[in-house]
Amino acid sequence: MQAQFQSVADFFHMGGYAFYVWLSYGIAYGSLGILIGFCITRKSRVLKEIAAKVQREERLAQHRSNKQ
């Protein structure tokens, strides 16, 4: 097994198909990156929502007990 390209520039040139090859890899890994980002942050977003809900409920409960 040996590298098929003579130099790094050759590698980026991709035998004349640089635009298409790098475009497709760019879009593929770019959209994967965005997906991974959304997946990972989703958990903390959900937890924040729930925490906000809990706080709201607590404030409501306190408000009610203050009135009495």
């Binding site: 590298a3 098929q4 991709m14 035998g15 004349g16 198909y17 090859v21 497709s24 890899y25």
Partner: peptide, 19 residues
Amino acid sequence: MVFSPTDYQQGDSYRIIFV
């Protein structure tokens, strides 16, 4: 991307196959 042989028909554009 680096070590697979170049396709004799499609040249290096075939490397898109790996994604």
